[in-house]
Every structure is written in C-alpha cells, then in structure tokens.
C-alpha cells in the first residue's frame, strides 16, 4: 500500500474536549500525529474526506500541513468512535517511512462458496475479520482474500493456513481459528414460550462466604 492520497491538515491551537467538539461541529476530524521521536502534533482533518479514505480501506496517507510546504507519510493507527459506534470522533496517525516495519491489521475477505454450507443447519462463522501482520509500510495490502470453497461441514481454517502475500509475516498464533463451518445439532437452541413459563421460580445458588469459615477454624484450635 503506497501513500497515494494527500490529506490536508490544520494545526489545532487549542486542545481538549471542548475545542475538539467545536472542530467536529465545523466538519473537521480532530487527530493526533506522533512517532519518530518528534513531538506529538494536534491536527484536524476534513471529516468527509478522511472518512471516505478510511472506508475505502486505505491506511497510509501523505499529510500536508497548511502552514508547512513539505508532506509526511503517516499510517492510520487508531480510530475512536462515539457511544453508538458509528461516527469517528478522533483518529491517531503515526509518522512512518515506507521502509519501516510495522504491525498492522489487514481486513480478511472470504471468497467462494464453502461446500460444507450445503449441509442442513450449517452456518459460516467468521471468528476473525482482521488478521494481524508484520510487514513494511509499503507492503500493507488493502485486504487479504481467503478462499473457503474447500471447507466442509464442521471444518475450520486457522490463521496458519492463510496464504499471505510476499513480505507479510503473521503476527498471531497460527492455530487461531479464523473461519469455521458450524453445524447445529437437531435439538440445539429449540425453545418455546411454554418452557419459559415453567422454568420460572427456580433460584440461583448463593455463594457462601468462605472467609468466615476459615477465620473460625484457627480460633477453635487456640481454645
């Protein structure tokens, strides 16, 4: 992933939640830029433009500050969302060189129709949507395609079975399950409202305090 797009940024004079809120209402996205041993900089990007690039899967950008003529390459490090999890309220950018080796999460895209899905009650469950990798900034792909057409019922694929593009190194346990075809048992999850009424009235077990029992024992011995 080469830095192809340039984001226009402005330096934020005042920082803090109150001023960040004003920036957001003015159509800006507050962000922080750090890394390479330099002082962190508080910037604001154009919200619409930034989100459009983020949604397209791009992670590496060129940042051009309004008062400085030179651009710098940055990697999107983190996003913060509002309480409903839909609007991006802040982002973290890290200064990088294209040759730097970094850790990144790459989106996993499943390709093909798994043969196991023809079995009755079979459900495709994707346990991991992003896969952590270590690679050079210039090598970060937009997505990794995983062919699941050979996956049968009750079978799974692990992270170690993914064919990674050249230059990428897996950064998690190779035995981690990525995708599984789960077949439901006949009786599993079957329930009617009649059952719900009959089961009421039962009470959970109360955990008794163990400390009191332990305290009593030494006292008895002393006596």
């Amino acid at each position: 992933m080469q830095a192809t797009h340039t984001l226009q940024a402005e330096r934020r004079e005042k920082k803090g939640s109150r001023y960040a809120k004003r920036e957001r209402s003015a159509g800006k996205l507050p962000c922080v830029l750090y890394g390479q041993g330099k002082d962190p900089a508080h910037l604001s990007l154009d919200h619409k433009e930034a989100i459009r690039f983020f949604e397209s899967g791009e992670r590496v950008f060129n940042i051009e500050l309004s008062e400085e003529s030179k651009t710098q390459t940055v990697l999107l490090k983190d996003l913060q969302f509002d309480y409903l999890g839909t609007n991006v309220v802040h982002c973290d950018l890290i200064r990088v060189n294209l040759d730097d080796v970094v850790e990144a999460n790459v989106h996993l895209h499943l390709v093909g129709d798994a043969k196991g899905l023809k079995t009755a009650g079979a459900v495709l469950v994707q346990k991991m949507n992003e896969i952590p990798v270590t690679c050079r900034v210039s090598d970060i792909p937009d997505e990794i395609r995983l062919d699941i057409s050979g996956l049968g019922a009750d079978e799974h694929m692990t992270a170690g079975e993914i064919t990674l593009p050249e230059g990428l190194k897996l950064d998690c346990d190779p035995e981690t399950v990525v995708v599984i075809i789960d077949v439901k048992a006949e009786s599993e999850d079957e329930g009617t409202e009649g059952e719900a009424i009959t089961a009421e009235g039962s009470e959970p077990e109360v955990i008794k305090a163990k400390k009191d029992d332990d305290d009593d024992e030494p006292k008895k011995k002393e006596k």
């Binding site: 719900a196 089961a199 009421e200 039962s202 009470e203 959970p204 077990e205 109360v206 955990i207």
Partner: peptide
Amino acid sequence: MPRMPKRVKFRK
C-alpha cells in the same frame, strides 16, 4: 428458558 445466573454472591 429465561436466563439467570447459576450462582450469585448476594441474593438481592
């Protein structure tokens, strides 16, 4: 069957 904890530390 409605869900509820199996074991609790305090009843109320």
